[in-house]
């Protein structure tokens, strides 16, 4: 029995009939073709599938697509603005915050949740906010620097704007 859902993803509204057991990450990848969200462990440990649902970071492998009905979803594909990289994306590039890149979309989305709550996090706060995201390449060192880079950039922008 398919269930009808309506979800806003990266600013665009979609209506689909889905099998209730469809995971949100499958819906994003297989139905919408947004393959930037990765499936790592599939057991809500590694955080590779992290996206924002109504502004909060969640692991999309541990959420059903039907649970997202009526919600606003943001994935890594929705971070750049008209081709201009989001400060977090830029930070990860500038500070070499990735090697294989598999965990990066989840890292960036979890960091986006952090920066939306705390625009000037300490190193400790960044590390705590990323506890739910595993990286097996970088040793996290440059990931922390990447988030700091983004925070600085966002704060500078806000200063200029005001």
């Amino acid at each position: 029995m398919a269930t009808k859902i309506k979800v806003k993803v990266n600013g665009k509204t979609y209506s689909h009939e889905v099998e209730p057991r469809t995971l949100l990450v499958q819906y994003l990848r297989d139905v919408l073709g947004l393959t930037g969200t990765h499936v790592g462990c599939d057991t809500s440990n590694c955080g590779a599938c992290t996206i924002l649902v109504d502004g909060k970071a969640v692991k999309s492998c541990t959420m059903l697509a039907v649970q997202a009905h009526g919600s606003e979803v943001k994935t890594i594909e929705g971070m750049a603005d008209n081709g201009a990289l989001h400060p977090l994306q830029e930070g990860f590039r500038e500070e070499h915050g990735l090697q294989c890149g598999f965990c990066t979309p989840g890292m960036i989305m979890a960091s986006a949740d952090l920066l939306s709550r705390n625009s000037n996090p300490s190193e400790q706060e960044i590390r705590e906010a990323l506890e739910g995201n595993f990286c097996r390449c970088t040793g996290y060192h440059n990931i922390v620097k990447s988030v700091q880079h983004a925070a600085k950039k966002i704060n500078q922008k806000e200063k200029v704007a005001s």
């Binding site: 809500s44 955080g47 959420m63 949740d113 739910g132 995201n133």
Partner: peptide, 9 residues
């Protein structure tokens, strides 16, 4: 409890 993503849900 868990991590940020788990606490959010």
């Amino acid at each position: 409890i868990g991590d940020v993503q788990v606490r959010n849900k």
